[in-house]
């Protein structure tokens, strides 16, 4: 795992260039260009605000803000995993022509989505100010939560991108899993609304649940995230990353032949 990450660091120039290219390429040729990076979440926000703020009145206070605290990092997670599945298998053009560590490709997907997520954060803060909540000092915990989420995402993307090279069905299965996953993660609802007998199970088996309630704790409830579940997720993520890196490094020699 350490060798894998060290290589990633050595090739940071390539990683960063590919990420910049992805970011630029996405809206290249469109009239509004880079503005779309902000426009997309804004339009999403308007739609959610309409549905959950006007049509389906929810008793949660400032529900749209609450929703967005979880929805933005979830989008970061789900699009990283969704796009990450084909990160290796779609890059035949690079893998069969040049020698470079293949983990750069899944890492590029995550970094690209991370940039998009970070760029949408001002929007979330603006929404908070609109609802009259300024971020409190508890925000110091935010980088840690984000780091844990990135670690877990990296592990998962390593795993699915390596497996998808040989089993192309995975990317299709994955989009279904992600939809299901979204609904068993407290994004649309607070964790407190899950019946207690399910709550324990979900917090235990779904690492994203602990991450999400941590975000909500920091930004919505203005308190420090619960330490127990977060530490558990951190440990799980490191172990999972170690396993995923093992799988990835075991399979990497075959990538150039199978893509």
């Amino acid at each position: 795992m350490l060798r894998n990450l060290r290589e990633l660091y050595q090739y940071r120039a390539l990683l960063w260039s590919l990420t910049l290219r992805e970011l630029k390429a996405r809206y290249r040729g469109s009239v509004l260009g880079f503005l779309w990076t902000f426009l997309n979440p804004t339009l999403l926000m308007v739609a959610y605000a309409l549905v959950f703020g006007v049509f389906m009145k929810n008793e949660t206070k400032n529900y749209v803000f609450f929703l967005f605290i979880g929805l933005l990092p979830w989008t970061f997670f789900s699009s990283s995993v969704g796009m990450g599945a084909s990160a290796i298998s779609d890059r035949r053009d690079l893998l069969t022509k040049v020698r470079f560590p293949p983990q750069v490709l899944p890492a590029t997907v995550i970094l690209t989505n991370l940039c998009n997520y970070l760029l949408s954060l001002p929007l979330m803060f603006a929404l908070g100010i609109y609802f009259g909540t300024l971020p409190s000092w508890h925000i110091v915990a935010y980088p840690l939560i984000l780091a844990i989420q990135i670690l877990f995402t990296l592990a998962l993307v390593y795993f699915v991108s390596a497996v998808n090279v040989a089993f192309r069905d995975l990317q299709h299965i994955l989009s279904n899993i992600l939809t299901f996953w979204f609904f068993v993660t407290p994004v649309l609802y607070a964790a407190s609304s899950i019946p207690p007998r399910f709550r324990e199970v979900i917090m235990l088996v779904n690492p994203m649940a602990a991450v999400m309630i941590s975000y909500q704790a920091v930004f919505y409830d203005h308190r420090l995230p619960p330490a127990g579940p977060l530490i558990l997720v951190a440990v799980e993520s490191v172990v999972f990353l170690w396993l995923a890196a093992l799988v990835f490094d075991h399979r990497r020699e075959d990538f150039a032949e199978l893509v």
Binding site: R21, K24, A25, R28, G29, D93, L94, T96, K97, V98, R99
Partner: peptide, 16 residues
């Protein structure tokens, strides 16, 4: 240090 001219234009992006 090795450079392989196996196929030209690895990673060229048409829109760039």
């Amino acid at each position: 240090r090795i450079s392989a001219l196996l196929d030209l234009g690895a990673g060229f992006h048409p829109d760039f």
